[in-house]
Design a protein around this nucleic acid. Structure first.
Lengths: 214, 214
DNA sequence: TGTACATCAGTGAACGCGCGTTCACTGATGTAC
DNA sequence: TGTACATCAGTGAACGCGCGTTCACTGATGTAC
């Protein structure tokens, strides 16, 4: 009992919240070295714990990575939900906000984005992961439905398809031009402007006008 | 001199074309285990050579990976060029063919595609790599210019922007839905159909008709 | 045509390193009574 | 309120492994004369 239980120093023999600390360590290491650069052992070291300790909380490295991806999708869904804001002030404007939120997330949380989409984590690595990913995609689908519903029924595209197009375009721009690492490609405009312009052309192709009175 | 120089067996003390063999080994290993799963040592083993031999041809692992990416962009450019076929039979149809060629390349050459876009290889890792990548993108730009030129000058978008949109959409679909590994997501249609539909909506948004009589 | 020699491309042994994983263990915590 | 005990979360030492890299070396090749 050389350490006090509360206070700023080391807590005690028991870490207190090692699982959380390992996830945060993984995020930090992925941001620094990429998804494949982080190791179980280093995450333990970062959390100030012996290399055997993580096995109390995660089966292996992949399980920890999948948990990082799950947290990523949860934060991602929250960010998109906030941006969509139930279609306020109007669906077209809200949709643009979702696009900006998408790219902002990819830029500001490169570690999470990597774990979610580029670290070879199977989308169904765990039920929780699959569910979190579905919830994030559901926002795009809901927003697409809101926009499609403003078209005459005969002209409506499948909202699912529209959501997939939007997702793919956003992911393409994020992956190629907006990532925070050395593999980013140069662009003569901001990723946000590129996505917004692409989205507007696409919506016009569907027959939707930006101001969009029904 | 126990081995004959020609013939099907092992060649001789000198490998003959070790550089080429290492690149092919890297491609094979990347396809099997992902970009980060392949090691310099294993590439050497695969080529039937001691672990020190590769250093005669590549400074390090990254240099070999960059060379794989360079070869990828060269093959990619060739595939896109063939699909574009100078805009025959007409630009819209040829453009669709380019899209299909893009996805086919991503599916059939996952190792090359990974090295080109997802293995954290800096786009300017070598002048040859940068040049090969530029040449591949130039096809998309040329095709975009051909399509844009059929619009009235006042309505023309910047062809560069159009090429970037097409690239991002194609890459997004390839990365999310068409990759050959475990991280692929399920899709209720073929990636080709998704891309073609997206491209048609986009072109319509620009004011281009599929048959496209100028 | 033959010989000496320089150059080149590979060998194989060795090294230090960090990782993943296991093991018996022990300090801390919580609970039954 | 106190005590015994079960459970839990972490320790630390150990292991085998494969990697990246280096080194002095040697067999093969090509060229000058």
């Amino acid at each position: 009992m050389p350490w006090s239980k509360q206070g700023s120093g080391r807590r005690s023999y028991h870490h207190g919240n090692l699982r959380e600390a390992l996830v945060l360590a993984a995020i930090k290491l992925i941001a620094e070295k990429g998804a494949e650069g982080f190791t179980f052992a280093e995450a333990a070291r970062e959390a100030g714990v012996s290399p055997a300790a993580p096995y109390r909380h995660f089966r292996d490295r992949d399980a920890l990575l999948a948990d990082v991806a799950r947290r990523g999708f949860e934060q991602f869904a929250a960010a998109l939900t906030a941006a969509w804001d139930d279609g306020r002030p109007d669906p077209t404007t809200a949709f643009e906000a979702v696009g900006r939120a998408y790219l902002r997330f990819a830029r500001e949380e490169p570690a999470l984005y990597t774990a979610m989409f580029e670290a070879q984590v199977p989308p169904d690595a765990s039920p929780e992961l699959a569910q979190a990913a579905d919830q994030a995609f559901a926002i795009l689908r809901r927003a697409s439905e809101a926009l499609c519903s403003r078209l005459p029924p005969a002209d409506r595209p499948p909202p699912l398809m529209m959501a997939l197009h939007f997702w793919a375009l956003s992911h393409g721009i994020a992956a190629l031009f907006a990532r925070g690492d050395g593999a980013r490609r140069k662009l003569p405009m901001s990723p946000e402007d590129l996505l917004e312009a692409g989205g507007l052309v696409y919506l016009r192709g569907l027959g939707l006008r930006p101001d969009g009175e029904g």
